[in-house]
Each structure stands twice: as C-alpha cells, then as structure tokens.
Design a protein around this nucleic acid. Structure first.
Lengths: 152, 152
DNA sequence: TTAGAATGGTTCACATCATGAACTTTTGGA
DNA sequence: TCCAAAAGTTCATGATGTGAACCATTCTAA
C-alpha cells in the first residue's frame, strides 16, 4: 500500500540535510572564533559540563578520537588555564582533569551561547510546530542512527 | 497565547541536532574511505555533477574555501586522473576544469552511494511520515538559515 | 610471588584541511 | 598606454587527526 520513496522527495531530503549540516558547521566555527578556542578544545571543554572529573581515556571516547589527540587537546586547555590535572589517588598512571574557575566561567558563557542559538531557532515557530518538529526529528535521528550502524 | 520554548524542548532539540550532525559526519568519513578520496577532493568532485566546466574561482565559492586551497585540491584530482584542465579560450588566466571519463564513472558511483544512504533513511518510514518530515525539515532549515545570518 | 600481559599516557612522524601573504600573468578600463 | 583588478600558484603556518613506538604502572596467572 505504501508508496515508495520518489525522486523528488529524495532530492529535497538531500538538500535539506546538507543545509542543516552547513548551518551546524557554521555555528561551530563561529563559536570557536567568538570564544577564542580551537574547535577541538572547545568541544573538549564542553564535556566538563556533564562530569566533574574526566580522564584522557574518557575524553577520547566521548570525542571519538584517538588518545594521542587527546594529549594535545588537553595540553592546550591546560596551557590556557581552563582545566588542570589532579593525580588519581587510585591509579598513578592516570591524571584526572577538572575545570579551573576560569574554565567554569568560560563553559558557562559557551553553554549560554549554544542555548541562545538553539532557542532562537525554535522560537521562530509556533508551539504546536515545535512539538511536531521534535517528534519528526526524533524519528529521523533514529532512522539515521540505524543506517549509520549498517555503514560500519 | 503561544507558550515559550521550555527547557525540555531545548535540551531535546540540542541533542537531536547533535546526533544528526554526527551521522552526517560519519557518512562523509565513510564515503571518503570507501572511494579512496580525501574528503575535500570528494566534495570538490561532486560539484562537477551539476556543471560541465568549473573554474578554480567557482570551486572556491561553492566549497566556501580560499583559492589557494582549491589549487591544492584540484592538483590532487588532476593527479588522480579524475579531472583535467582545458584552457579558457576567452581568458588565458583561467583554466577550465572538467571531468575525465574516469572522473565521470567515479562521480556516478559516489552519487549512487549518496542516494542509497538517503533513500535508506527515508524508506524506514511510512509515506505519510516522510511527507510531514520533509515539511518540518523545510521549516527547520529556513529557521536555522535565518539564525545563521544573524550570526555573521 | 613474580614474570609478563594489559592499560593509561606521551611523543613523534605523517597526512589532511584550511588561511593569508606575496607573487606572476593576463585583462580591462581611465 | 599605463595601472589597477582579477585568476592562479607558491609558501609559511596552524589546526585536526591517525598510528606506531615507548614508559610507567597495574593486573593476572602460573
């Protein structure tokens, strides 16, 4: 009974996704500039919003990046005084990373900015529209996630 | 009358967008691997799907990249035998770039892959769902586009 | 209990992506 | 005709990322 995906839908979909992607990229570039941090360091810093202490390994997993890369990024953030190392009392191989006061302030400002951008996007539509949009995005993201798994 | 954006919606929205973005990124990495081309060269190659001839300048604009970068990318594609240069008869400063037969074959395969991925995502939902999704994405993309303009 | 495997990090070499300045050649306008 | 603008190239620099080699330290199994 269900009609198959047609050409038009496919093309429209491709172009919409491409636009969304570009907007996200532009936002990240902008915010890197605005806060004077390389994109990777900014992405790393944000992780500390969720957890008080992180290890290099943990960061590598969350950032989906190899551990030697994390070494570099963390060095950058330490040099900037945004995070600092504390030795892990349980295991002397690892050092725990945590925000400094400066880092906390920075992260607050960054999160505020990110929220404001997303808020701005949502606020341009009516409440009802927002609700259905989120429903649809949820379905889309599940579908994309599933296809991504096939792709490995 | 309209309720304002609430915390929950905002967080949900942020996380959905982040997921979509990651899926797109993963797809591009995968396809770069699959076709044995650096991401930038692949992105450049695809531009030739729309137009028969491109100049370095035109590529720079479409890729949103500085012209010296284009020089490098084009060199790569020429070295791989996927595109070739023809002198512009009107202006000897510019060389026109065009696909070789190999390049045409490559681009066909790549587009087929891209279509198949997008098709796969869409085909996981019912026709009616697809229709409303596309409508919603259209609204979203317009809104994001508008916010992006504010951001410059 | 102690040798050897596994784990957490660092360093280094390498590749890709990207910018900006300096430069060459050609074009086009005052 | 001369000079500014435009198209490309080259070069120096920096960010992002991988993978291999290497140290410590910790865990495990004979």
């Amino acid at each position: 009974m269900d009609k198959p995906v047609n050409e038009n839908q496919l093309d429209q979909f491709k172009s919409l996704i491409a636009k969304l992607f570009q907007c996200c990229q532009a936002r990240m570039q902008y915010q890197s500039e605005k806060f004077g941090l390389p994109e990777a360091e900014l992405r790393c810093l944000i992780l500390f919003g969720q957890e008080r202490y992180l290890t290099s390994k943990g960061i590598a997993i969350k950032m989906n990046v190899v551990k030697s890369r994390v070494t570099k990024v963390v060095q950058g953030l330490v040099k900037r005084g945004l995070i600092h190392r504390v030795p892990d009392p349980k295991d002397s191989r690892v050092s725990l990373l945590a925000l400094t006061a400066d880092g906390q302030r920075k992260i607050d400002k960054i999160n505020q900015f990110i929220d404001s951008i997303h808020w701005e996007v949502l606020s341009r539509m009516a409440q009802e529209q927002r609700r259905t949009l989120l429903q649809n995005l949820d379905i889309l993201s599940a579908s994309m996630e599933a296809v991504k798994e096939l792709m490995v």
